[in-house]
Design a protein around this nucleic acid. Structure first.
Lengths: 127, 127, 127, 127
DNA sequence: GTGGTCTAGACCACA
DNA sequence: GTGGTCTAGACCACC
């Protein structure tokens, strides 16, 4: 129990995560243009350099392409996006299961709890 | 999409969470004495005031009891612990499902992904 | 012939290349500590942020590891270094052959020219 | 390791290099007329003065001749062109070998790597 | 002391 | 107008 405590991830990563999620959720579509670095900077109340870093990160991950003098665009490579989707899903699941196991839950309890929750949520939605 | 970049939760909360988890997985048992505030402070490299707040928080939640002059003890109220267990499980599940939905996954994909993962993990363990 | 003209690569890349070469040449050995960001910055007459970026780039390539509060160290993963060596050799060769072909030389001329040069260089060295 | 980060060579030199290469691979033939300074300027999106300097440079090297009122022509002196070919080849080889040695490769590795690459390229072409 | 992040403001090439 | 690089100077957490 002498490990250190968690920090919030840097802004440029948090921002990248948000954008990633919006893309994966198809809220922003392949080929679409992102706001310019400066626009996004004022929109988020952040320095343009920070946004720049975010966009670079997204490009490094193959989510986004930049065209000089034109802007930053969501990749049209649907395969890459699908691949990314799976990666993220996997990572989420792993960390979820780990948390549950840290609290002493076994596989059965995890599954049954989740099923119950989803059923209930479904019911609520139908109302 | 203004301000609103996340900060990490305060250390005393993080510490409370850790202790909660250790109790729930029976690593620390009902009735057992917690380390003194000072001991815990040293152990975690943290200010004693922080530990004090953590213990208060745990007491407020009915997880521990402090006995003047004797120390802080894990409650023997098994019902309370079971209740807590359920609460935490529920909260974990909620935040997991929310994350998955933010990435555009529906209930079916969430469940099937989790099942696949648990099966695979089980297989690995048996080896 | 309407393509654009070449630019020099950014400083942080040039610096990364230099360090890469020094490592591959075993002038700096696996596990060795690099100069601190600030030291390297004054040494190269460059802003610390630029060096930071260089080090990040090197880390991303798996050439270097950073240990918080301690410094930046050359990876001890010899396989990674060897892999990198091969990659770079391949890239050099490709661009060399392409240049030669752009000047109208065929494979035979390329090889014979290189052999002649190396023989001559060897002779010079023996003197 | 002071100052000394590389700048790109001036545009007029880059342009001269391109033209040289086109001549050497017989894409432009001895005696042929080059585009006028103005034409070339438009074609390359460059200032006419830059093209002028390029042509002067080429003339200085004995690759082209300018005839007042007629234009600029590629020399018909085949010996000069052959000489140039050898010079350029030599320079390419030198810089290639230097790069490889900077990465710690010895003559044998250079040669074997190149042979392997050329063989493979040959194979690909035959397909 | 170390690396890592962020801001402010500048300049550049591309289109 | 766009993205990309660089500088200057600040603050933070880790050791």
């Amino acid at each position: 129990m002498k490990d250190s405590f968690k920090h919030s991830s840097p802004i440029y990563i948090q921002l990248a995560d948000r954008i990633k999620r919006r893309i994966l959720r198809r809220e922003m579509k392949p080929g679409e243009k992102l706001p310019s670095v400066r626009e996004m900077a004022v929109e988020c109340g952040v320095n343009p350099n920070t946004v720049q870093r975010t966009y670079s990160e997204l490009e490094r991950m193959g989510i986004v392409e930049t065209r000089r003098g034109q802007g930053t665009f969501i990749t049209e490579d649907a395969d890459r996006l699908e691949e990314l989707r799976k990666e993220l899903r996997q990572r989420q699941i792993e960390s979820f299961v780990q948390s549950m196991e840290e609290m002493g839950f076994g596989p059965r309890e995890i599954l049954s709890g989740l099923e119950a929750y989803l059923k209930e949520a479904e019911g609520r939605e139908k109302q």
